[in-house]
Amino acid sequence: TTIEWNGTKITVDNPQKAKELAKKIAKKLGLTVKVHGNTITIE
């Protein structure tokens, strides 16, 4: 699972952990999480 935001890509083996990490990042930055299959985008 890949997390993408602002040109940065982070690959996380565990999809559940990836989703939790994305939510934490999005919350800190005041952004939203969008899931597209194996890609999680923070916008």
Rank of each mutant, 00 (worst) to 15 (best):
K23G: 07
L29W: 14
K23R: 11
A26F: 05
I3C: 07
K28S: 07
N38M: 06
A18M: 02
E4I: 15
V35T: 06
K23F: 13
P15G: 05
G30H: 06
N14W: 05
K23Y: 15
T1H: 09
A26M: 06
H36A: 09
E20D: 10
K27F: 07
A22I: 05
Q16I: 13
A18D: 00
V12T: 05
G7H: 08
K24D: 06
W5Y: 11
T39C: 08
E20T: 11
L31H: 05
I42Y: 02
A22C: 02
W5H: 05
T11G: 02
T1R: 01
P15I: 11
K27A: 12
H36Y: 09
T11V: 14
N14Y: 03
I3T: 06
T11R: 10
I42F: 14
T41H: 10
K34Q: 09
A26Q: 05
T39A: 06
T11D: 04
W5G: 04
E4H: 13
T8D: 05
K28Q: 10
D13S: 15
G37E: 06
D13I: 12
V12S: 02
G30N: 07
V33D: 00
E20Y: 13
V12R: 01
L29E: 04
G30K: 05
K9H: 10
A18F: 04
K23E: 15
E43Y: 15
E4P: 06
E20V: 11
G7Q: 08
K17P: 01
T32G: 05
T8C: 15
E20F: 10
G7W: 09
I40S: 00
A22K: 01
L31W: 11
V35I: 14
G30D: 02
T11W: 15
K24N: 07
A18Q: 01
K24W: 15
T41Y: 15
K9R: 12
E43F: 15
T11M: 11
T8S: 09
N6D: 07
I3Q: 06
T1P: 07
K17E: 09
K19C: 15
I3D: 05
L21T: 02
Q16A: 12
K28T: 07
G7R: 05
K17I: 11
A22N: 00
G7N: 08
T41L: 13
T8H: 15
K17V: 11
K23L: 13
L21R: 02
E4Q: 11
I10K: 01
I40T: 01
I42V: 06
Q16R: 15
K23T: 11
V12W: 03
E43W: 12
T39M: 09
I25E: 00
K23S: 09
E20R: 15
T41P: 00
T8P: 02
A22D: 00
A18G: 03
Q16M: 11
K23V: 12
N38Q: 07
E20W: 15
K19A: 11
G30P: 01
A26R: 14
H36S: 12
T39G: 03
L29V: 04
K34W: 06
E43T: 14
T8Q: 12
P15N: 07
N38Y: 03
L21H: 02
K17L: 12
P15L: 13
E4F: 12
V35E: 05
T11E: 09
I42N: 00
N6S: 08
K24V: 09
K34T: 12
G30C: 06
G30W: 02
T11Y: 15
G37S: 03
E20Q: 14
N6G: 12
K27D: 14
I42L: 15
G37C: 06
G37Y: 04
L21A: 02
N38G: 06
T11H: 14
K34C: 09
I25N: 00
L31C: 06
V33M: 11
I10S: 01
V33R: 00
T39F: 07
K19I: 15
L31E: 01
T2H: 10
K24F: 13
I42T: 01
T39V: 14
K9F: 13
T39N: 07
T32S: 11
E20P: 01
V12M: 13
V35S: 04
K19V: 15
V33G: 01
I3P: 06
H36E: 12
V12F: 12
H36G: 03
L21Y: 08
P15Q: 06
G7F: 09
N6A: 09
N14D: 14
L29D: 03
T8Y: 15
E43P: 06
T32A: 09
T8M: 15
K27G: 08
T39K: 10
T11L: 12
T2W: 09
E43H: 11
I10R: 01
G7S: 08
K9G: 03
